[in-house]
């Protein structure tokens, strides 16, 4: 008889650990156990992140070769990743072995490569958002689109602080939109997300959903 032990063991672990952590929110005497398990979760999440990065590397290593027309990009990604990792490890060794905790080279990479690219991507979004907002009424003219468009317009006009474009009543309208109807909608959204999270979490804690391969 072939007994699959892995599935029930994993399920029992997930349910057991989950119930202890959840109970820790409501029973003060087991709060310390909850914190210890949350710390365990933090370390495991960090290791899971490393697994994800190793997976990214493996996927791009597999893409290398003359058959794949995008192999050049994969090679560049691998070089960028490994180079940054090596430089960071050198910084880390300097920090822990010789006490020079300044991470100068890693910070240089962050400031001169990562930060400009991130800011530029956000800047490019401005152009895309302008185009999307301009074309929304052309593509779909209904109550939702009209409300959406005019709210964007009012909030933007009310946010300008350049003297010729500053109109006090637009500031008041903007503040009211953000403070009242937008808050109502956002609360509804947040409550919906919270209810969805609780449902999904309970399904996992009851063993109905087993995303760990159980």
């Amino acid at each position: 008889m072939n007994i699959k032990l892995n599935a029930p063991v994993s399920t029992a672990i997930a349910i057991g650990v989950g119930i202890i952590v959840l109970a820790g929110y409501f029973i003060p005497s087991i709060t310390n156990i909850r914190f210890a398990l949350l710390r365990t979760g933090l370390v495991l999440a960090a290791v899971a992140l490393l697994v994800g990065i190793i997976n990214l590397l493996t996927v791009h290593f597999k893409k290398l070769g003359p058959d794949n027309e995008n192999s050049g990009y994969s090679l560049i990604l691998i070089i960028a990743l490994l180079l940054t990792l090596v430089i960071g490890i050198i910084d880390m060794v300097q920090s822990y072995m010789f006490g020079q905790s300044n991470f100068q080279m890693t910070n240089w990479i962050f400031t001169n490569i990562q930060l400009p690219i991130e800011t530029s991507l956000l800047a490019v979004t401005a152009v895309s958002l302008t185009y999307a907002a301009a074309s929304i009424l052309r593509k779909r003219m209904d109550l939702f689109s009209i409300t959406f468009f005019f709210v964007i317009l009012l909030v933007l006009l009310g946010s300008f602080s350049i003297p010729p474009a500053t109109l006090p009543f637009l500031h008041i309208i903007r503040d009211w939109i953000v403070r009242v109807p937008a808050l109502g909608g956002a609360r509804g959204l947040l409550l919906g997300i919270a209810l969805g999270t609780i449902t999904t979490g309970i399904r996992i804690l009851m063993g109905t959903d087993r995303p760990y391969g159980g």
Binding site: G18, L22, G41, G201, I204, Y212, G213
Partner: peptide, 10 residues
């Protein structure tokens, strides 16, 4: 992963 998912869900 089961430990991680259990802790995360709770």
């Amino acid at each position: 992963v089961a430990i991680l998912v259990g802790i995360g869900a709770a």
